[in-house]
């Protein structure tokens, strides 16, 4: 009698062993191939472009012909917060001071103090001054005090060239378009909030209406149709500008050419695409 006949389990065991071996080999191969596909190469940016068809999601708009960027002239900002309200209305952002796609920070240096006082729409004193969550305003906090210096800094998603939010997204719901915009596919986002953690600029939030991550899209639905973003439209002092870097005469191209621009937290290595004039060392 053979061993197999004596022991009815042995053929099954060999079968299990065979299946096990092949599963390991197949798994290793597929992981290897997938990893190779995603390893950065010298022509990484080229390959990103070539992965996309020329026709983007918007009919009549070729996303390979554009590269969007944003500019902020902070010296022009008056802190009226019309941009925040316009954004919330345009993009259906929850009307509360704790979820926002754009906001404005106020930096105030009082006489004799080294550190600035910073506040924004989420400051309880500013909320009290607004009296409603539908409108936002800066409260008059420094009446009667000698102010050495004060300025406003508008903030929004930086649509980074190396976006950490995209890097950490487990499904690819956060992605970069070939025209330089970072977007979220809300039908695909699992709502893990890893991207909210990973953004160094606090630009992302968890939208409890959609149960997904949310952030500024540079009004992609508008800029791809030749319009400006809602915040740019609403800004009364032209402190905010959106433009196409592939067009040398766009607002942003001209702004970058004519000014010595800075970006926020350059040490993070994210390469932000919101270019500022009027920052100072304390702007966070």
């Amino acid at each position: 009698m053979s061993d197999d006949a004596k022991n009815p389990d042995l053929p099954r065991r060999s079968f299990i062993r065979l299946i096990g071996k092949w599963t390991v080999v197949a798994g290793a191969l597929s992981v290897g191939v997938e990893t190779m596909k995603h390893l950065p190469t010298a022509a990484a940016s080229e390959s990103i472009i070539s992965r996309y068809p020329p026709q983007g999601p918007v009919p009549g708009y070729n996303w390979l012909d554009h590269h969007w960027a944003f500019a902020v002239d902070a010296t022009r900002c008056i802190g009226c917060l019309r941009c925040v309200e316009a954004c919330k209305i345009e993009n259906d952002v929850p009307f509360n001071p704790y979820n926002t796609r754009t906001w404005v920070e106020r930096y105030v240096y009082l006489d004799g103090e080294k550190e600035p006082h910073v506040d924004s729409i989420d400051d309880p004193r500013d909320i009290a001054a607004a009296g409603t969550r539908m409108n936002y305003r800066f409260a008059d906090l420094y009446e009667g005090q000698k102010v050495d210096q004060a300025f406003f800094i508008p903030k929004l998603c930086n649509h980074c060239t190396n976006p950490t939010c995209v890097e950490v997204c487990p499904t690819g719901a956060s992605y970069q378009t070939p025209d330089g915009v970072v977007l979220i596919d809300k039908t695909y986002c699992i709502g893990c909030r890893y991207c909210v953690q990973a953004c160094p600029y606090g630009a992302r939030y968890f939208n409890e209406q959609t149960n997904t991550a949310d952030k500024c899209t540079w009004c992609y639905h508008r800029i791809t149709k030749g319009m400006k973003t809602a915040c740019v439209e609403a800004c009364p002092t032209h402190a905010r500008k959106i433009g196409d870097l592939k067009d040398p005469n766009s607002d942003v191209s001209v702004f970058i050419r004519e000014n010595r621009v800075q970006v926020l937290k350059p040490e993070m290595g994210n390469q932000p695409n919101v270019f500022y004039v009027g920052l100072n060392k304390d702007v966070c």
Binding site: C169, C189, I190
Partner: peptide
């Protein structure tokens, strides 16, 4: 993890259509 997710019904997407640069994917 599932209790925390905004869309737990999509949880398997992290493994079915993984985004390899995410530490979550490798953890999965």
């Amino acid at each position: 993890l599932l209790l925390h997710l905004g869309h737990p019904e999509r949880a398997l997407e992290a493994m079915m259509t993984p985004h390899w640069s995410s530490a979550f994917v490798m953890f999965s």
